[in-house]
Design a binder for these strands. Structure first.
Lengths: 361, 361
DNA sequence: CTGAAAGCGCTTACAG
DNA sequence: CTGAAAGCGCTTACAG
């Protein structure tokens, strides 16, 4: 093991920061990679000490740490994530599963998650389930063997097999967007049902009496909003099941136009439409424009989520602003705590929502 | 190494597919993980043979392969990606860097890339640069040490340091969305300049004489579209630099409204506006609606990319449909070839674009 | 077609 | 505060 020539790099000029560190030919590795041992040899200590120093572990002489840090930087040493993962039995990756990226809601969520995680030295590995239980299961089967440090899942609706995979992996996991059932499962979100009830009540207060619920996608959260809608209308004595348009098709602006059309054909016609998501509400608003239908005079329209463009609509859309960025940040923080073995006292964190009244209602 | 009790799992019932395979207590590993050696022992061959059989390498007795496959499946064996990466010096991850996820253009790109890569056994590791060279550099510094099998980058505009990192890593790399400079750099995209010229010419043919170019973000591809715009107007003898509104701010529907306002204040006023992206064009269309400004009679409006909603606008937006899904698919395929060491004969693949004429022009 | 040996680059666990 | 030993779970390269 002593076939290295004496280290010469210490007197070498520092590489320009604009260039990647050159690989040293003095390395014994065929890969040309600078390893922990290379650094250890250059400094004249054991690899273990370098490992400790670089990871900021206690119990290393501060002066030595400084020297090791400097030498490592100068030599362009970068830890090998694969080796680290293999030795420590865990990676720096956090698996983040969302239903869809075309809904900007989840883009906001991911951006916030990434930012928080990256700052803590973790990487977000993003998986998209397309609202498909089988796909989610496959993603878990594929990525769980990578020993992610943590797991961030959207909601609670998944297959028993998926649940079992997560449980068996013992990887710390936080659920986002919804609140748990109080059983102590870590989650960060808000009450989708309460939010649905809130915007429905707003419509009732505005004097509307025949309020339809127009939905596409029909995922778990949409159905929770429907629950809130029902609750609010029942309380007001205005509930009529024939006013629920629950279409399983994926949402889009075009679907919103179709839903508006269908809703207006109901007899007697509704005087207000609660769309389960802003994209279909926007589509409905544009369809109303095309038809010359006055909103909200002829029919009020509301959405959910406050997505980009909703404030630009004609008229601007009344909606529920959901705290997805905040959820991403707090969800990541909670996960980080779990990863570190710290306690999370309220395992379920309610971040609320906000009714944004604009001119469409 | 002979401290295992005799394998009993062969007669054990197959685990229900709805449950993850249980960890065998007979494993010598503290991690409880089923390893290659466990499978080898159960079958009665060497770990090397199991490794070869499971990877589908030639030169293994077909009958043995079958037996190994079955036993591995029954035992719930899953290869450890970290160990594999460490031993083979490369991972199954492909690093995909895009500027922004809030532009659905890149979501479509990523979806297509993921699908193609996943089917080939690779995983897309997504990084978002936010149109920031420093961020891109940092992502490369962070993820390149993971030894990704390949690299998928958006465009060619990056810092010299980023280029150097990519080159030094020797990781196969394909550039997406733009075409190369003909120097043989692998790329899949289309000519942004030609597309910009094409839609400009369309406006000229419609009889417009004062055609403004309204842009936000001003990334490399936007500026290439501007180049095409200029070229087309110069050819028509209609070029006027004062008609170029180049705003560096990030695009949004609200910015589109502002750009419309600014464009209409030009003197003499333009009769057509070419927006560099559909989101700002949509914003402009809505602002025109608010002002009661007739489109296209008073002013024609066109966009770029054909994003969701453009066909729903009032009036529907004339735009350029860009083949991002196709680019994602073909880009991933080209990368897969490079990874396998196969030749890619035209290293630059032009997938074209399509002028979509609707009612806004 | 199959296997024994060595090693990938780290960290864990145990000593001192 | 520091280090020698062993091992994480695979694959490469060399034999046969």
């Amino acid at each position: 093991m002593a076939r290295h020539p004496p280290p010469a790099s210490q007197s070498a000029p520092l590489p320009s920061s604009a260039e990647p560190a050159r690989h040293r030919s003095r390395s014994s590795r065929a890969s040309g990679r600078v390893t922990l041992s290379d650094v250890a040899e250059a400094v004249g200590v054991s690899p273990m000490t370098v490992s400790r120093a670089l990871r900021g572990e206690r119990r290393v002489d501060p002066a030595l740490v400084e020297k090791i840090r400097a030498t490592a930087a100068q030599m362009g040493y970068v830890p090998d994530p694969a080796a680290r993962a293999l030795a420590s039995q865990k990676s720096a990756q956090v698996l983040v599963l969302v239903p869809m990226l075309s809904n900007t809601l989840f883009v906001d969520l991911i951006e916030a998650v990434h930012k928080e995680l990256f700052a803590a030295g973790y990487h977000a590995l993003i998986g998209v389930t397309h609202y498909d239980r089988a796909e989610e299961e496959q993603l878990l089967r594929t990525y769980l063997p990578m020993r992610p440090a943590g797991l961030l899942l959207t909601g609670f609706d998944r297959s028993p097999a998926a649940r079992a995979l997560v449980a068996a992996s013992k990887v710390p996991c936080v659920h986002l967007m919804e609140l748990g059932d109080g059983s102590g499962t870590p989650s960060v979100g808000f009450s989708q049902a309460d939010a649905g009830a809130s915007i429905t009540r707003h419509l009732v207060e505005r004097g509307h009496r025949r309020i339809a619920f127009c939905a596409g996608q029909l995922d778990a959260r949409v159905m929770q909003r429907a629950t809130g809608y029902r609750r609010a209308l029942q309380e007001a004595g205005l509930y009529d099941p024939s006013l629920e348009l629950l279409w399983p098709r994926p949402t889009s602006m075009a679907l919103g136009a179709e839903l508006l059309d269908a809703a207006l054909r109901l007899e007697p016609a509704p005087d207000a439409l609660f769309f389960c998501n802003d994209d279909i509400a926007q589509g409905a608003l544009l369809e109303a424009l095309r038809r010359g239908l006055q909103v909200p005079q002829r029919v009020a329209i509301t959405g959910f989520n406050d997505l980009p463009g909703s404030d630009q609509m004609v008229p601007p859309l009344t909606t529920i602003r959901t705290p997805r960025s905040h959820i991403g940040t707090e969800g990541a923080r909670m996960l980080l705590k779990l990863i570190r073995g710290e306690p999370v006292d309220p395992p379920s964190m309610d971040l609320g929502y906000e009714l944004v009244v604009r001119q469409s209602s």
